[in-house]
Computed example of a mutant assay.
Amino acid sequence: MDRRVFLKSAAFAGFSIATLPATLLRANADGSKILRMAYGAEVLTLDPIKTTYGADILIQGMMYARLLHANADRTEVGPGLAESWDIADDGKTYTFHLREAKFSDGSPITAEDVAFSWNRMRFQKDSAYAAPFQPLTKIEAKDARTVVMTLDRKFTPFLTLTEIWNTGIVPKAAVEKMGDDAFAKAPVTSGPFKFVELKPGDRVVLGRNEHYYRQGEPKIDGVEFRYVPDDNTRVSMFQAGELDVCLGVPAPRMAELKAAGFRADPEPSSTTYDMLINHSAEPFNDLKFRQAVSYGIDRTAINAAVTLGLGTPASSIMSPTLDFFDKSLPVIARDVEKAKALLAESGKTGASFELIQNAGSADEEKAAVLI
Rank of each mutant, 00 (worst) to 15 (best):
K142C: 04
I220W: 08
A351I: 12
D202C: 05
S346K: 07
L355G: 04
Y273C: 00
E42L: 08
F96E: 06
K50G: 05
N303T: 09
F225A: 07
S280A: 13
L161E: 03
Q124N: 15
S117K: 12
R299W: 06
K102I: 03
P171N: 05
S117M: 08
N358R: 14
A29M: 06
Y212S: 01
A141L: 07
A351R: 10
Y213F: 13
D181T: 10
A70E: 13
I332M: 13
K327A: 09
I371Y: 15
T45G: 14
D221F: 05
D244C: 10
I169T: 12
A174V: 15
F284Y: 04
F96V: 00
P218L: 09
V43Y: 11
N358F: 08
K199Q: 13
F103C: 11
F225M: 03
N209F: 00
H97N: 11
E140W: 03
L35I: 07
D47R: 13
V5R: 09
D89R: 11
G241I: 14
I164W: 14
F116A: 09
T93G: 03
S9I: 04
A362Y: 10
T233W: 03
L20I: 15
D202R: 09
L247I: 12
T307H: 02
V223N: 03
R253E: 09
P48I: 02
V245Q: 06
A22N: 12
D56E: 06
T23C: 09
R203A: 08
K327T: 09
T146D: 05
L198T: 11
M318K: 09
G91T: 04
P108K: 05
V223W: 01
L24W: 05
G296E: 02
T93D: 04
L308H: 09
L342H: 11
Q124H: 15
S9A: 14
A82R: 14
D126Q: 14
F103P: 15
G311Q: 02
K125N: 12
N285W: 04
V235N: 07
L198I: 01
L257V: 11
N28A: 11
N278V: 13
I57M: 11
T51S: 15
I87F: 00
S270K: 04
T349E: 10
K172V: 01
I317N: 06
F123V: 09
P21Y: 02
